[in-house]
Write a protein that binds this DNA or RNA. Structure first.
Lengths: 132, 132
DNA sequence: GTCGGAGCTGGTGTGGGCTCCACGTCAACG
DNA sequence: CGTTGACGTGGAGCCCACACCAGCTCCGAC
């Protein structure tokens, strides 16, 4: 998880929903939801109307998954995706967005650490009063 | 936050809802919700039916807050409180519960760290391609 | 007394992020 | 061909942890 995707060097760059589910671990419903929410570039369909995802999409999903798992709201991930689509002149804004999120993640880590110490102290206390 | 409460040494050990709100930072609705959900020992009422919280309750709320903030579901916190009420013979079970939660917290921290590194890499990348 | 404000109960609403459902279509298999 | 199974769409439902509300009671200050 949270790995930069190795791009497929060769040819076949279209994936069925099932393949994407397999690859990303996201459910198909989530995939559709993400598409509708603008986390993905438009996904085009084959003759029968079925989605054909590209390597691009997999990359976007990998970013999205990382941001989501670290607690960024879907709307913000969508905003980020939108910035990417908008072109290079949004790079500063993207950096700002990521940095701010990074700060929140940092704070969350710090908070969790404190909570963990508290838990450890509690456990230690119980150990000390445990009947022999 | 996440601090073991200093017990009031002296006498007055009854708190109004407002005082508890003040002390814990929880909303009164949350307080009621926690009471109903069994995170607290029964709270008794004064003649007029108003809650009188004790130091006990404040202590429980401090634990509850820590567990909640580190992501433990309300139901599990209630389970823990129930074990405490059940007496000393549940200490092993409490330790087990806390340890397991501790492991989850640990995992969450690790995951967040990875995500943060990912974000940092992304930022660094953007820095490197920024137009001069 | 009367008024403001804190509390009470019981019930309903909210928001985010999925998740499930009904129903329809199409391609492929045997 | 018929059936199966993957997908499609639109919309409803769900879960959690509160937040909010109506309508009432009580206490203390003025």
């Amino acid at each position: 998880m949270c790995q930069a995707r190795r791009m497929t060097a060769g040819g076949m760059t279209a994936y069925t929903p099932a393949q994407v589910v397999e690859e990303t671990g996201l459910s198909i419903d989530t995939l559709r939801y993400y598409e509708k929410s603008g986390l993905l570039d438009p996904v085009d369909r084959d003759a029968a109307g079925r989605r054909r995802f590209t390597d691009q999409h997999l990359e976007q999903l990998s970013v999205a998954r990382c941001l989501r798992e670290s607690g960024m709201p879907v709307a913000d991930v969508a905003r980020y995706a939108e910035l990417v689509r908008a072109g290079d002149h949004t790079i500063d804004e993207r950096v700002e967005l990521l940095r701010e999120h990074g700060r929140r993640v940092q704070a969350q880590i710090a908070s969790l650490r404190q909570q963990q110490r508290y838990i450890e102290r509690k456990v230690a206390y119980y150990q000390s009063v445990r009947r022999p």
